[in-house]
Structures are given as structure tokens and as C-alpha cells.
């Protein structure tokens, strides 16, 4: 298994990096220049998607799925925007604690009770969407500009955004290199085999859901920081896009494969297509059409190759 998985994983990584490089080159050619401001916008937008997608990725490694990550981000951003101006420490800690609890709840319901992940997270999605509206009925609250300068950099300083993006990819890579990460991959590869070799499958899976909730909450905090305020619905757009980013990063939905950096690439690819359309003077209406096609291309390429081979052989 691992003998096959490793080369595939490397190709998967390179594939998404190559596509991103091509898209970036196209963008620079179309625009004629690529300023620090452009780099910052790209990194900050991709960072928000990447964090939620990294959380999704940990859960997909357990062969699960989480539809509640977007709304978890909404609640965490809303709480942060309300609290942080009055009490900075609480404003940073409360969203983090919420993310951990929300993730743990999903984990307990899916793993502890043994319910299908899609229906559990569909229900918790509805609960957190509602909670976000109750916490913050209309977009509002405020996050002092100091946090923006500190966490994602000012409008002309691109490096903090870029470094944060790579750092979060690195942190998740590190998590996966620990004993926990190894067990997580083992479970994704073959749950029964992992259990037989002494992996505490339930504990590892619950931890994956908890960390997923945490990463989503941190993504929501970045959203609040970059908007300088909270919005109760900001995370809804990430519910399905986070799954798309994982897939575009070349991670298959079954099996413990893929890498966090590839997921970051997936987030960058889905983010850059928006700017690309803008500068190619193509209507933004084409955005989801193109995202859908990219998704199909990535997810279907291996199957299409086999299908065509099958036809030729006939």
C-alpha cells in the first residue's frame, strides 16, 4: 500500500503546484504586473479557504466528511468580532475553545454513537448557522485594525499573509508526521488493519474531528480579522468549497493519501481563478462553471484514463 501511495502522493503534490504555477503565470501576463498588494489579497483570501480545507482534509483522511466547518467558522468569527474589542484575551480564546468543542461534538456523534458523518454534520451545520444568527443577527462587531496588521499584514505588506499560509500548511504537515498523524493515515488506508495493529481508532478519529473544528474556527477568526468585523453567514460559502479545495489538491476521498501542502495548493488554485477571470475581463458568472470543471478534471482524470484504455482494448 505505502509503496504505491508514496509516489502517487508526490505526483499529486506536483500536479497541483504545476497547475497553480501556470495559473499564476497567466495572471501575471494578463495583468502585466504583480504587486505586493495583489500577493497579499491572494494569500489572505486563500488562507481563509486553506484553513477550513485543512480541517476538512483531516476529516476526509478518516473517510468522513464535515459540512459544519463553514458555519463553525461563522460562529467563531462572530464571537471574536463581538468580544475582542472589549477583552482581547477572551476574544482570542473563546473562538478557539468553541472550535474545539464543536469539532469534538461532531466526533462524538459520528464515532461515539456511530452515525453517518454527512447527516450528523448536516444537523450541526444547521445548529451553528442558527447559533451564528443568534450571536450576531446582522454583520457587525469590530476587530481593531491592530490585529489585521499583526496577523495578516497591512495592505502593502504581503509577507505576513504568505508566511501564515505556508506556516499553517507546515503545522498540519507536522501534525501528520506525529504518531497521531501516522495512525490517522493508517485508518484512512485500512481501518481494520489499523485497529488490528493496535491503533486506537475511535480516539484518533474523534481527535481528527476536533482538530477540524479548531482549524475551521481559526479560519473564521482570520475572516473576522480581514473584514475587521463579523458576519453570521460568512462561512456558508465554504461548506462545499472546502471539500472542493481538498479534491483539487489531489486528495482522493478514500484512503489516507494526499498532503497538507497540496490542500493549500488546492485552496490557492480555487482562489486565483477568481482574480484570473477578473483580469481576463471574463464575467465572474463563469467562476463556478470553471471551478466545477476543474473539480471534474481532477477527480475524473484517473478514471477517464482507465475508461479510455478500456475502450481501446475493446
Amino acid at each position: 500500500m505505502s509503496a504505491i501511495a508514496v509516489p502517487r502522493r508526490l505526483i499529486g503534490d506536483r500536479w497541483s503546484a504545476i497547475v497553480f504555477a501556470v495559473l499564476l503565470t497567466l495572471l501575471i501576463l494578463l495583468k502585466g504586473r504583480f504587486t505586493a498588494f495583489d500577493l497579499r489579497s491572494l494569500c489572505v483570501a486563500a488562507l481563509q479557504l486553506a484553513l477550513i480545507a485543512l480541517g476538512q482534509y483531516l476529516i476526509i483522511l478518516t473517510r468522513g466528511i464535515d459540512l459544519s466547518l463553514g458555519p463553525i467558522a461563522s460562529v467563531s468569527g462572530a464571537v471574536m468580532a463581538i468580544v475582542i474589542a472589549g477583552n482581547p484575551a477572551l476574544g482570542l480564546m473563546l473562538p478557539v475553545a468553541f472550535g474545539l468543542c464543536a469539532g469534538l461534538l461532531n466526533g462524538v456523534l459520528v464515532v461515539g454513537i456511530g452515525l453517518p458523518p454527512i447527516i450528523v454534520t448536516l444537523a450541526t451545520m444547521s445548529i451553528w448557522q442558527g447559533a451564528a444568527l443568534m450571536v450576531l443577527p446582522d454583520p457587525g462587531g469590530s476587530v481593531p485594525s491592530f490585529y489585521q496588521a499583526f496577523f495578516i499584514g497591512g495592505f502593502s505588506s504581503p509577507y505576513i499573509g504568505l508566511v501564515s499560509l505556508l506556516a499553517w500548511g507546515g503545522i498540519v504537515s507536522w501534525v501528520l508526521s506525529t504518531r497521531f498523524g501516522l495512525n490517522l493515515r493508517a485508518i484512512g488506508g485500512d481501518e481494520l488493519a489499523a485497529e488490528m495493529s493496535g491503533v486506537r481508532v475511535r480516539g484518533v478519529k474523534i481527535t481528527a474531528y476536533t482538530l477540524g473544528g479548531l482549524l475551521a474556527a481559526i479560519g473564521g477568526m482570520y475572516m473576522a480579522i480581514s473584514m475587521s468585523s463579523g458576519s453570521p453567514t460568512v462561512g456558508d460559502g465554504y461548506i462545499l468549497t472546502s471539500i472542493a479545495a481538498v479534491v483539487v489538491g489531489g486528495v482522493p476521498l478514500v484512503g489516507g493519501r494526499g498532503s497538507p501542502l497540496a490542500v493549500v495548493m488546492g485552496a490557492l488554485i480555487l482562489t486565483i481563478t477568481a482574480s484570473l477571470l477578473f483580469f481576463a475581463e471574463v464575467s465572474s458568472f463563469y467562476q463556478s462553471l470553471i471551478d466545477g470543471c476543474i473539480l471534474l478534471l481532477v477527480a475524473g482524470s484517473a478514471g477517464a484514463r482507465d475508461f479510455i484504455r478500456g475502450l481501446v482494448r475493446k
Partner: peptide, 30 residues
């Protein structure tokens, strides 16, 4: 896509949803 190209149903239909969304926006101009 699901049967012949072995794409996971959740991904295949998610992509189709995006394609239909984009096509509707393009067709109607909003």
C-alpha cells in the same frame, strides 16, 4: 462520471451543481 469514471458521488454532483450554477448565471446574465 460516477459509474464509468469512478468519481465519488459527492464530488461528481457537487461539481455538477457548480457547473449548473455557472451555466445559469451565464445564460441569464444574473
Amino acid at each position: 462520471g460516477i459509474v464509468k469514471l469512478r468519481i465519488a458521488p459527492i464530488i461528481m454532483t457537487l461539481a455538477m451543481n457548480n457547473v449548473m450554477l455557472g451555466a445559469t448565471l451565464v445564460y441569464t446574465g444574473g
